[in-house]
Nucleic acid binder design. Structure first.
Length: 195
DNA sequence: GCAGGGATGAACT
DNA sequence: GTTCATCCCTGCA
């Protein structure tokens, strides 16, 4: 079983994986961008879908690490997570925002799917990036080391500054600083609260 | 049966 | 800056 991708060991705690994913390039069917915002979730804290144990909806998070967990939010939007920890634990990282790759074909495809021209808003939110990439329920529980997924390591020549802060859109465990962003990125779903 | 959600975009003040 | 309707499925009573 492959648990290390793009230099990241997905069997590590989700907050570790979440911070290391900032700067990694995510491609889905050849379309995507650099990850600039993530959030960590774990079965031990009540904001997580896996809090309270495995259900038919969240079973993928209890499976092997380095796989996908896709769920629908508010009946409208899809959200993409990467599974972490060991089999049976229940942990994952929500991919919240991408900086779109400057590839003309990819940009055109994402703009068409989003019916939106503004590059800054193409992938600046978990539901938005799934719409731009074409991720839906059929992509739940897939191996991240194989197509349609491709993960490329950070560019070692480019230093990335990662900031941590409280997560967005949750009502429980709001104090945990498990949101991670690239400092100064224009492509965040919301600006990081100034420290 | 029903309350609520890891969100978004439009319509407001 | 803020509120608000929207969509559908899940989980628990």
């Amino acid at each position: 079983m492959i648990t290390t991708l793009a230099g990241i060991d997905f069997s590590a705690p989700s907050e570790v994986v979440a911070s290391q994913l900032i700067g990694v390039t995510l491609l889905f069917n050849g379309v995507g961008g650099r990850i600039v915002e993530t959030e960590a979730y774990d079965r031990e804290e009540p904001a997580s879908h896996c809090y309270g144990g495995e259900t038919p909806r969240n079973f993928a998070m209890f499976g092997a690490p380095a796989r996908s967990y896709v769920y629908q939010s508010h009946g409208i939007h899809w959200c993409l997570n990467f599974v972490c920890r060991e089999v049976g634990h229940g942990a994952g990282v929500l991919i919240r925002a991408l900086e779109p790759l400057p590839d003309p074909d990819g940009l055109a495809l994402m703009r068409a799917r989003r019916k939106l021209h503004d590059q800054r808003l193409l992938c600046s939110g978990p539901g938005r990036l799934c719409q731009a990439l074409g991720v839906t329920r059929t992509h739940n529980n897939l191996v991240l080391s194989e197509p349609p997924f491709v993960l490329l390591p950070r560019d070692p020549a480019h230093a990335v500054t990662v900031l941590a802060g409280p997560r967005i859109g949750i009502s429980k465990a709001v104090e945990l600083p498990w949101r991670f962003v690239e400092a100064g990125s224009r492509f965040l779903s919301k600006p990081m609260r100034s420290a």
